[in-house]
């Protein structure tokens, strides 16, 4: 049995068509036996040898690293931030694409004015690394979400967060100052499973890579 951990939310939504192309769509009968939207987190698929588990985005690498899932689909932002050991990330799935950006209130060119920038972010490690590489001083305030409020409330000078269309930033009076990284969802493998079930996982990975290549050609 292969268990694939998939991050809830946008990654799950965009991974579903890809999984369906591979014959790994969640089994709807098992999923919605009462007609209501199911809250089951372990889902069988059309392939009896494969099942899916739904995880919170930041937990997907942990489930894969500890061996609860042999394979996973996780966001590049989380993988970069957590740098979980005992996994490998052999394939960029090119779904759930967005950018990690530094954003600050619109029109404010030098928000910190002579002192280290106060940056609110969920991605403290990634942001710290980026600022260090630039040689810029900054202090980081870890927040769990809705980062855009921090500069408006005077909590921070700027934020480091994910942006897709940039609408949330604009609607909250912020603008993108610099792009930190392109982000997309990655296929991840448990290191032990990658060795012990090498052939099975390599075949599945190959099929996923071919499906992505076909999408890119279309």
């Amino acid at each position: 049995m292969i268990t694939i951990a998939v991050a809830k939310g946008r990654i799950w939504n965009e991974a579903l068509p890809l999984l369906a192309e591979l014959g790994l769509a969640p089994d709807n009968d098992a999923n919605t036996n009462t007609g209501e939207e199911s809250r089951r987190l372990i889902l069988p698929t059309a392939n009896p040898g494969v099942r899916l588990i739904l995880t919170r985005a930041q937990d997907t690498p942990v489930f894969v690293a500890c061996g609860a899932a042999q394979m996973g689909i996780a966001g590049g932002d989380i993988l970069e931030e957590k740098q979980t050991a005992d996994i490998c990330q052999p394939l960029d799935l090119q779904i759930a694409k967005c950018r990690m950006v530094l954003a600050a209130p619109r029109g404010r060119e030098n928000p910190a004015a002579g002192r280290p920038l106060a940056v609110a972010t969920k991605y403290v490690n990634t942001a710290r690394k980026w600022f260090a590489k630039k040689g810029a001083a900054a202090n980081f305030i870890k927040l769990g979400g809705n980062m855009e409020i921090a500069p408006l409330a005077g909590l921070a000078d700027a934020i480091v967060d994910l942006a897709d269309t940039g609408k949330t930033l604009r609607d909250n009076g912020l603008e993108e100052k610099e792009k930190i990284a392109d982000i997309s969802a990655k296929l991840i493998l448990n290191r032990v499973a990658a060795r012990r079930q090498r052939k099975t996982l390599a075949q599945l990975q190959q099929r996923i890579a071919e499906a992505i290549a076909q999408r890119n050609r279309a």
């Binding site: 490998c88 990330q89 052999p90 493998l189 990658a194």
Partner: peptide, 9 residues
């Protein structure tokens, strides 16, 4: 680090 992750890209 990327090499040990098998992250070719």
């Amino acid at each position: 680090r990327r090499f040990s992750l098998r992250d070719a890209d």
